[in-house]
């Protein structure tokens, strides 16, 4: 259903975009169809100002405290965190694999960079995902145009900078089309 627009008080600091935070959890081992993926996505909340973001964030469990196979998805309002969304159909994502213990700090640095428009790639960013897995954690940044090499390079460089990743850290770019085939 359609949600009402997000109101902002004049004393709050407006963000460039409004965002929605989603949560999903899948049973390990089970194949996820598109339909069940959609049904697993739960909207936690929305915000359009810095103050509203902190109001929501401060009530959340830190990613490192989430159970295995859980994801948080922070996407611009109007873009569902699914390949099938129109904004994602020609897109892709940067994938950063993190050893255990780093995810909460990296996720916070990533979303602050996204909300503060630190990526400087115009309208290209769709959202970010943090995935808690058994042996490692994964964070991803989704963008609209996988074929735009300048944009994907800039996102990679910004990620390295804001996450303080060593040059050796493994980063991989995958188009959503490739992901669909797997």
């Amino acid at each position: 259903g359609l949600l009402p627009p997000i109101e902002i008080n004049p004393n709050e600091h407006k963000l460039q975009y409004a965002y929605a935070l989603w949560y999903s959890r899948r049973s390990p081992g089970k194949q996820t169809s598109i339909q069940s993926y959609d049904q697993n996505l739960k909207l936690i909340g929305r915000f359009a100002s810095v103050e509203q973001f902190w109001g929501l964030y401060s009530h959340l469990v830190r990613p490192s405290e989430l159970t295995t196979h859980t994801d948080f998805h922070l996407f611009k309002v109007g873009i569902k965190p699914m390949w099938e969304d129109e904004a994602n159909q020609k897109g892709g994502k940067w994938i950063v694999r993190l050893r255990k213990g780093l995810v909460s700090r990296c996720w916070e640095n990533l979303i602050l960079a996204m909300l503060g428009e630190q990526f400087m790639v115009g309208e290209e960013i769709c959202g970010a995902v943090v995935s808690i897995r058994f042996q490692e954690d994964i964070i991803c940044v989704w963008n609209k145009t996988a074929s735009d090499v300048a944009t994907t390079a800039r996102i990679r460089d910004t990620l390295r900078r804001v996450l303080h990743l060593p040059a050796s850290a493994s980063m991989e770019y995958k188009t959503h089309n490739e992901s669909l085939k797997n």
Binding site: H13, L15, Q16, V50, E51, W54, G55, L112, L115
Partner: peptide, 21 residues
């Protein structure tokens, strides 16, 4: 229009403002 850009430190400072809670 102008893009609304916020540095990390600025965002962190607003974390404890009364309207952020």
């Amino acid at each position: 229009g102008t893009r609304i850009v916020y540095e990390r430190a600025f965002l962190m400072n607003l974390r404890n403002s009364p309207i952020s809670r």
